[in-house]
Design a protein around this nucleic acid. Sequence first.
DNA 1: CCACATTCTGACACCGGTGTCATAATGTGG
DNA 2: CCACATTATGACACCGGTGTCAGAATGTGG
Lengths: 339, 339
Amino acid sequence: MKHKGKATSFDIAHYAGVSQSTVSRALRNSPLVNEETRRKVHEMAAKLNYKVDKNASNLRTQQSSTLALLLFEDPTTDESQINPFFLSMLGSITRACSKEGYDLLVSFQSSSQDWRADYEDSHRADGIILLGYGDYLDYQSRLQQLLDQDTKFVCWGAKVDGREDLSVSCDNYGGGQLAAKYLIEHKRTDCAFIGDASEHSPEFFARYEGFKNTFEQHNITLSERKIANAISTEDSGYHATKSLIANNISFNALFAASDLIAIGAIRALQEAGILVPNDVRVVGFDNIPAASYVSPSLTTIEQNTTLAGQMLVSNLLNLIKGEKVECTLLPPNLIVRNT
Amino acid sequence: MKHKGKATSFDIAHYAGVSQSTVSRALRNSPLVNEETRRKVHEMAAKLNYKVDKNASNLRTQQSSTLALLLFEDPTTDESQINPFFLSMLGSITRACSKEGYDLLVSFQSSSQDWRADYEDSHRADGIILLGYGDYLDYQSRLQQLLDQDTKFVCWGAKVDGREDLSVSCDNYGGGQLAAKYLIEHKRTDCAFIGDASEHSPEFFARYEGFKNTFEQHNITLSERKIANAISTEDSGYHATKSLIANNISFNALFAASDLIAIGAIRALQEAGILVPNDVRVVGFDNIPAASYVSPSLTTIEQNTTLAGQMLVSNLLNLIKGEKVECTLLPPNLIVRNT
DNA sequence: CCACATTCTGACACCGGTGTCATAATGTGG
DNA sequence: CCACATTATGACACCGGTGTCAGAATGTGG
């Protein structure tokens, strides 16, 4: 019964005394095969440790039961550190995939110019999930190209021109509102914003807009001078905040476009002898695991990554099935801690 | 030139006026095809946006240019949080794979009983990387089964009985020595250890052994009473440390089996009014990103995840190629910060 | 001009499954 | 006992590439 190489369905057929066609049907539990025969085939397959060759099966059926995840990184981020928020998304996407019986191909894309998205063309995946804070404006032409090729994909965060159904994102605008309301309730109306408040980072921009507009509804105008640019790293948040301090710009609250930025900002404040939260209250965004570890622990706007992963996967699968998909906006959630 | 469905090599052949065989050869840059023909074929392939069907190609060549990563989690860990150390490994493995021209299938395995390892059997991957602190003793029988089936795989951390070449790990024993030497230098010899100092967690155990033995070489005996069990989560570290404090066990230094444990331990110490590092010095293990964010920032033993990922991938590829592979022990590195 | 090597190309079997069609075996009703 | 439906099975084409082999076209030397 020992065999060189892996067993094929012909081997099972031979030992079970049936035809290869019957083996194939029996293993997929087709109702066409006799109960007794099915049992015999399954038994033999188990004995020979037979596993269906996915390449052959995929080739014939023209689908792969696999999704591809493209993770775009800020090109400035260093090799070993990956944004923890996306890692958390990665975890939930992986789980959502396996729950749906799909495998997941993971690929990190560092260059924004020529990323690989040929997973579907090459029949390696049935669809693609795009993930990243990235400067998506650069990508629109590539996204359009994917659309033209009829590639199935969904995006986190970014909008695809004219195709809202391809996006899943947090209600960033609403998150900004939550942060503003929280600070207003605590009478902190002299606010700084650390992040990129331009349309180059659509997500950060929406957070800022929701934040600013809520203040305006309370007749408070945020000073443009109190905005400091930063990408989503601890280091960048640190330096941006330092430069505000160096320029003698005062504020009693700080809204950071992401938790990493907030953590860096707090470090800068502490170094300058500014007390958090007594002198300056800080609100972050994301609720990454570290937000609860740092001290003081970070007050932040949570994005539900578990739900986000599920929505990305289920929307993509519906898209593949050709069903209508709605634009998906996930509700953010204020987590009050000690800043 | 528009076409329903995706283009195949036959389409290219048709439009380029050559045979399908020639197309296949031309696209793989076989030296057998004429320069002029090759150019024509490449041009037409680009125009039709043709991509080789990986299923067909893999089926024929019997290899997939894909590796599978199985990530084992502590079953107690909650859904959304994944050990940041492993996430960091995941990042470096992904990068190492793509550098070698391989794709990576990622799969989280929560049950230690019946994990899926049929990626190779089903020809979906050429080899498997196993990653986890997991209680590997439970897995030995499964690992043995993989060996029997001649499945190509490498493990992080765990030993495979009689096959040291299949493991890549940090020199955990040496890491424990580093931690001990550091504390001895700072005259902190009354040490607690938080983690699992049993053979159920071979990595933690080795860290403890290196730590303990170094103290013994200096004629200092660590008290067994000062060991508290914990798995690698912040919460577990917090509770373990709290119970030490509650039992009035004194110590002036603490070695945590992982950074997450250390971060939890510091929280427990701070809550009890114990100053870090003045009253108790703390040394962690891993050097996860958060180690530098927390305050006070964490002194820890670094594991080089970039190198680890590269070694796992390159050892696995060598194994697949049938080459000899050496057991790989990576040097740990003391990172002195503020604890 | 023929023998022979070299370069290039096409025909074809093959990888290991899946789906369709034909057919054998059995049951059912008139 | 025959017409017909039902059930179970095998034969075979097919998915889209890759590798082998045969042979055409051209070049080279004697």
